[in-house]
Amino acid sequence: NQASVVANQLIPINTALTLAMMRSEVVTPVGIPAEDIPRLVSMQVNRAVPLGTTLMPDMVKGYA
């Protein structure tokens, strides 16, 4: 099963992502692949992401 990127904390809108904000977890539906975590660092979210939410490509500016 593919691990996805999950929010490790509440991430406010327009926040630049850091490693501490993300974790890898096997979830359904599948979100951004966990191997993309290094690429996500310093990218901004375009909405508030609650703790435990799977990051989807449309939630991260410049990812999709």
Rank of each mutant, 00 (worst) to 15 (best):
T18D: 13
T53A: 07
P33L: 07
N14D: 14
Y63T: 04
V45C: 05
Q9E: 15
E35C: 15
T54M: 04
M56C: 10
A64Y: 03
V41K: 12
P57F: 06
P38M: 11
L17R: 00
P33E: 05
P57D: 07
P33N: 12
V6R: 04
V60P: 01
E25I: 03
T28N: 09
Y63W: 12
I37W: 03
L10S: 12
P33F: 08
P33C: 04
S42H: 12
L40K: 00
L17E: 02
L55C: 01
G52Y: 05
P50K: 09
N46D: 12
E25R: 03
L51N: 11
V30L: 10
V30Y: 09
A3K: 05
I37E: 03
L55N: 01
E35H: 07
M22W: 02
M43T: 12
P57G: 13
V6H: 02
T54E: 02
V5A: 14
S42C: 06
N46W: 07
P33R: 07
T54V: 09
L51M: 13
V60M: 07
M59I: 07
I32K: 00
V26L: 06
M43K: 10
I13F: 13
E35N: 12
I32W: 02
Q2T: 09
N8W: 10
V41N: 04
L40M: 05
M22V: 12
A16Q: 14
R39F: 12
N14Q: 11
A7S: 09
I32F: 03
Q44F: 09
P38Y: 06
K61W: 08
S42L: 11
S42N: 06
D36A: 05
M22Q: 01
I13E: 14
G31H: 01
T18G: 06
V41H: 07
V6N: 01
Q9N: 09
I32T: 02
V30D: 14
V6W: 00
A3E: 14
T53V: 10
V60L: 08
L51G: 14
P57E: 08
P29F: 05
A34Q: 06
M21A: 08
M56Y: 05
M43R: 08
P12L: 05
I13D: 13
M43I: 05
L10E: 13
A34P: 05
R47A: 13
V49P: 01
A16V: 15
N1Q: 15
T15Y: 11
G62C: 10
E25C: 04
M56Q: 09
V45P: 03
I13Q: 05
V27E: 03
A20Y: 15
Q9I: 14
V30G: 06
Y63F: 15
E35Y: 04
L19W: 11
D58C: 15
A48E: 15
Q9L: 15
G52P: 00
R47E: 13
T28A: 10
K61D: 06
V26R: 02
G52D: 09
Q2S: 08
L17G: 01
T53C: 04
G62H: 11
V30T: 09
M56A: 11
G62M: 09
D58R: 05
M22S: 01
G31I: 01
K61Q: 07
A16Y: 13
T54Y: 02
V5D: 01
K61L: 11
V26P: 09
P29V: 07
N8D: 08
M59N: 04
L17W: 00
P57V: 07
R23K: 04
L51D: 13
E35V: 04
A16N: 12
L51R: 07
Q9R: 10
L55Y: 00
G52N: 14
A3P: 11
N14S: 05
N8Y: 07
T53M: 09
L40G: 00
A3S: 13
T53Q: 10
M43Y: 14
A20V: 14
N1W: 07
T54R: 03
I11H: 00
R39K: 15
V27L: 06
N46F: 10
A3C: 04
T18C: 03
P12C: 13
S42A: 12
M21S: 14
P57N: 13
T53P: 01
Q44H: 12
M59V: 07
V27R: 06
M59K: 02
P33Y: 13
A3L: 10
L19R: 07
K61N: 08
P38G: 15
V60W: 01
R47H: 13
L55S: 01
L40N: 00
V60T: 02
M59C: 05
K61I: 14
G31K: 01
Q2G: 15
I11S: 00
R23E: 06
N14V: 03
Q2Y: 11
P50W: 09
R23W: 05
L55D: 01
A34S: 11
L40E: 01
Q44N: 14
A64T: 15
V45L: 08
V5N: 01
M43P: 01
V26M: 06
M43S: 13
G52I: 01
V60D: 02
M56G: 09
A20L: 09
P12G: 15
M21T: 05
V30A: 07
M22I: 12
N1H: 06
P33W: 06
Q9Y: 07
V27M: 08
T15P: 01
L40V: 09
P57A: 12
Q2C: 14
I37L: 11
S4F: 03
P33A: 09
M22A: 01
N46L: 10
N14H: 12
T15H: 12
V45D: 02
I11D: 01
N1C: 13
